[in-house]
Amino acid sequence: MRVVMFGYQTWGHRTLSALLDSEHEVVLAVTHPRSDHAYEKIWDDSVADLAQAHGVPTVIRNRPDDDLLRTLKDIAPDLIVANNWRTWIPPEFIALPRHGILNVHDSLLPAYAGFSPLIWALINGEKEVGVTAHMMNAELDAGDIVVQRAIPVGPRDTTTDLFHRTVDLIAPIVTEALDLIASGRTDWTPQDRSKASFFHKRAEEDSNIDWTWPAEDIERLVRAQSDPYPNAFTHYRGRRVRVLAASVSQDVYGGTPGRVFIREGAGVVIVAGADARRGRSHGLVIERVRTDDGTDLPATEVFTTMGGYLSRHP
Rank of each mutant, 00 (worst) to 15 (best):
I209G: 03
K195V: 00
A182K: 08
T166K: 03
T189A: 10
G184W: 07
L178R: 00
I218G: 07
T212A: 11
T189Q: 12
E216F: 12
R165I: 07
L178A: 06
I218P: 07
D187S: 08
A203D: 15
S207D: 12
L180I: 14
W211H: 09
L180A: 10
D179W: 07
T189I: 13
L180W: 08
A196S: 10
S207E: 12
I181L: 08
E204A: 15
W188N: 01
D179I: 02
N208V: 12
R220K: 12
R220F: 07
R223Y: 06
I181Q: 03
T212R: 13
G184F: 05
S194D: 10
D217C: 12
I209Q: 05
D210L: 10
K201N: 11
D206K: 04
V222Q: 01
P214N: 13
T189S: 09
E219V: 15
A177H: 03
E204Y: 13
V222E: 03
G184V: 01
D210N: 15
D187Q: 05
E219D: 15
W188E: 01
A182S: 12
P214Y: 09
D168A: 15
S207M: 15
V222C: 05
A182Y: 01
D168L: 11
A182H: 07
A177W: 01
D217N: 14
L221T: 09
L178V: 09
T175A: 08
A196F: 07
R202G: 14
R165L: 10
S194L: 04
I209S: 05
D192C: 02
L221R: 14
E219N: 15
A215S: 13
D206M: 10
F198K: 06
V167R: 13
I170Y: 10
E205T: 12
